[in-house]
Each structure stands twice: as structure tokens, then as C-alpha cells.
């Protein structure tokens, strides 16, 4: 009985939250005009969510590529097809690892920062003050941060994949000695632009929208206390990760079935 009641209250809570988020998303879209007419607002957020995430994305991408190279070589070698290493590295990065890992890193690096910033602005009544000055906080604070994240994410994912492929190339061609030409030509023969590259970009765009929306929402919705902000940051990271993985599953099942 108690368990059922608990389940019910959790379910109601989740539906409420989803409704709030959907309404909030709509508001952001309605108030997005300023983000593009006053581009410097969005450029500032591009700096904070994009440029400042650059280092972690590039380094992680390189390491993921190096590991993929080592593991891929070890497995492919058993079947005598170590030439296809380029294919394996490229496909796994473009289709899955690039968007997903970059998305997870982006959520914990930039998403949490956005939540913290908006949350602290709420705690210090900056949002209310702005509202009293007849400036909509959604248009001035939330929307530029949202669009900054949405624009950054696919670019970061592309850089992650590029660095990963470079890492795979380092291991395969430079250290192991796979033929350079075979590495690239096998890759190019197997990777399709529309099917693999474009689908990966679409995924990263979707993750960008999801993470940015969750981050600005949690910041805007947080309880205006120190504890509330810290909880909101945790929620941003956790629900972004869940959203990315769930979205990834759904999108993969639509994009890559019935080959």
C-alpha cells in the first residue's frame, strides 16, 4: 500500500515536472528573439559553454580514440582484419561515442555551470530585480544560455569525434604500423555521410537541446537557498545523463535499424 502510494506520488511529480519543462521550453522559444537580435548576449554564453569546455572535450576525445585504437586492434587482429581499424574507430565515434560522451562531459562541465549561475542569480534576487526592471529574465538570462548550449554541443561533439579519430590513427598508423592508405580508404568506404555523420550530428543537436533545457530549467526552478542550488546542480548532471542515454537509445533505434 505504502509502496503504491509512493509510486503514485513519484509518477505525479514526474508528470508535473515534464509539464513545467515543456511550458518553460515554449517560453524560451517565445522569448528567443533577443538572443539573435542582440548576438553579443549569445556569444558570451558560447564562450562560457563552448570555449571553456574545449579543453576537456579535446583531451577526452583523444584518450577515447587512443583506447578505441588499442582495444579495436586487439580484437580485429584475432580475425585478421586489423586494416578495418579506421572503420571501427570512426563508426563507433560518429554514431555513438562522439555525441554521447561529449554530451555527458558537456552536461557536467557547462550544464552544471549554467544551473549554478542561474540558481545563484535567483538566490541573490537578481532575476526578480531584472523582472522588476521590466526586463524578462527568460529573454535576457535564460534564452541566451539555452542557445549558447544548443549551438556549442554539436560543434563540441564533432571536435570530440575528430580528436578520437586522430587518436585511433595515432595508435593504428603511427604506433602499430597499419598502412596509412588502408586506414583512411577503409574508413571512407564504410562511413556514409548521411547515414553515419549526419545522424551523429542530429544526435548531438538533440542532446544539446536536452542538456541546455535541463540546465536552465533546474537553475530557474531551484529553491533559492544554498542547498537548493547544490541540489539543482546535482539534478542537472543526473537528469542530463539519463536524458542523453535514453534519447540515444530511442534515436539509435529509429536511425540505425533495418540496414
Amino acid at each position: 500500500m505504502g509502496g503504491l502510494r509512493k509510486l503514485g506520488s513519484v509518477a505525479i511529480e514526474v508528470v508535473w515536472q515534464l509539464g513545467f519543462i515543456a511550458r518553460f521550453f515554449w517560453l524560451i522559444l517565445v522569448y528567443s528573439g533577443q538572443s539573435f537580435t542582440r548576438l553579443n548576449l549569445t556569444i558570451r554564453e558560447l564562450y562560457f559553454s563552448g570555449v571553456l569546455s574545449l579543453l576537456i572535450i579535446l583531451v577526452s576525445g583523444l584518450f577515447v580514440g587512443l583506447v578505441l585504437g588499442l582495444q579495436g586492434y586487439e580484437i580485429l587482429q584475432r580475425y585478421g582484419s586489423s586494416d578495418s581499424m579506421g572503420t571501427m574507430v570512426a563508426l563507433s565515434l560518429l554514431r555513438e561515442l562522439g555525441p554521447v560522451v561529449a554530451g555527458l562531459l558537456f552536461a557536467s562541465r557547462a550544464g552544471s555551470a549554467v544551473t549554478a549561475e542561474i540558481g545563484l542569480m535567483k538566490v541573490t534576487e537578481q532575476l526578480k530585480a531584472m523582472d522588476m526592471m521590466a526586463v524578462s529574465p527568460i529573454a535576457r538570462v535564460v534564452a541566451p544560455r539555452f542557445w549558447g548550449g544548443v549551438i556549442s554541443m554539436p560543434l563540441l561533439a564533432a571536435m570530440f569525434s575528430t580528436m578520437g579519430i586522430f587518436g585511433g590513427w595515432l595508435i593504428g598508423v603511427v604506433f602499430i604500423g597499419i598502412d596509412d592508405g588502408a586506414f583512411w580508404s577503409q574508413m571512407q568506404a564504410a562511413v556514409d555521410f548521411r547515414y553515419d555523420v549526419l545522424n551523429g550530428v542530429i544526435k548531438s543537436c538533440a542532446f544539446g537541446v536536452a542538456v541546455s533545457l535541463i540546465a536552465v530549467f533546474q537553475g530557474y526552478d531551484c529553491v533559492p537557498t544554498a542547498e537548493g542550488v547544490s541540489r539543482a546542480i546535482t539534478r542537472t548532471v543526473v537528469s542530463s545523463a539519463l536524458a542523453i542515454l535514453a534519447l540515444d537509445f530511442v534515436m539509435t533505434s529509429f536511425m540505425f535499424r533495418g540496414l
Binding site: I43, Y47, V51, L54, M159, W184, A189, V191, D196, V197
Partner: peptide, 29 residues
């Protein structure tokens, strides 16, 4: 700030082009 964002966006577009042309071979085949 503008400069950094410019660099960032250029790098991102370069990465996308790399993936499209060199990896995905949009042109040749």
C-alpha cells in the same frame, strides 16, 4: 571574448568538415 568564440566556432566547423569530407567521404564516392 569574440575572438575566442570565433576560434571555437571555426574549429567546430573545421571538425564537421573533416568528418564530412575526410571520414565520411561526401565528395569522392
Amino acid at each position: 571574448l569574440d575572438l575566442w568564440v570565433g576560434i571555437f566556432v571555426a574549429m567546430g566547423i573545421a571538425a564537421l568538415l573533416f568528418l564530412a569530407l575526410k571520414v565520411g567521404s561526401i565528395s569522392g564516392s
